[in-house]
Amino acid sequence: MNKTIYLTTTKKIIKHKFVMFMFFVIGIVAPLAMALDRKGPAATSIEGWDPFAVSALFGILVVTATNAVGNTLALGGRTDYMPLIVTRPMHRYQFVIAKWMALATVVGTVSVLQHVLLWLTGAYTSWGLTNDMISMLLLERILSVLSVTAVLTLIYLLPTQGMILSGILAFELATGFSIFALNLTVPLKETSSDIFSLLIDILGISDWAKTTFLPAIFGGNASQSLTQYITVLDKVCGFLAPQFHLYDIFSVHPIRWAPFLEIITNILIALALANLIMNAREYHYDVD
């Protein structure tokens, strides 16, 4: 890792006012709001959250937080100052690793801060989590951050702006519940999703989608195609933001290492691909 790139990128992210505002909201305001509201009847279940709302909020964070890192990774045509960097005595992989670590440091700090605040305010205890569970949750967050930021680094190295945008959108869909417990600040599933589902059923949208809309798009065998599509999407999501629960992994005997190895592998694959792209990339500093 190149220490100069790491420190400069971290400083750059921290200097980004909007990113820091988002971090403040997510890292401090959200857990404190949760702590104040945890005695409410709707907040009794840790599973009761709306992933769509979380995804939307997280998406804003992703786009803004990675802006600082992405700008120096993505192809920017005439706005690209990478030629000056890559002509310095430094391996390209050092650059990738430094960018990844800088992003992971900032995002990780906020995630850990949120975790600590939730623990200090007694939110975790109120859900009945034991100290072991809370410790595992912390480790889980750190691993998630490393994984998610590795994928983000890869996304920002994709060769075209269109691919980068698609990557961000895919990533946004795939995440939403990995790093930040934002579910604590948005309407809970029991109150929001059920009403939404009910509304869809009442208006007949659900039936119309199943009998008319989906067959029109996917053909006669719509439901089968859709299932396959969702399966693929699920696997992609699994790579972009793998889900795992360390406490479950370590509390059973024999320990199932597969999910743990999966996340490590994901990080390595994302970074290896990022390095491949970085090394293969050409830098046009101007149109001749």
């Binding site: 400069t8 706005t79 000056l84 430094m90």
Partner: peptide, 20 residues
């Protein structure tokens, strides 16, 4: 090669740097 990069200097046609 690293040895080459250590001894070169480069100014692109349109210098655009870290604006912050």
């Amino acid at each position: 090669d690293f040895a080459v990069r250590e001894i070169i200097g480069f100014l692109p046609e349109r210098p655009l740097f870290e604006s912050w």
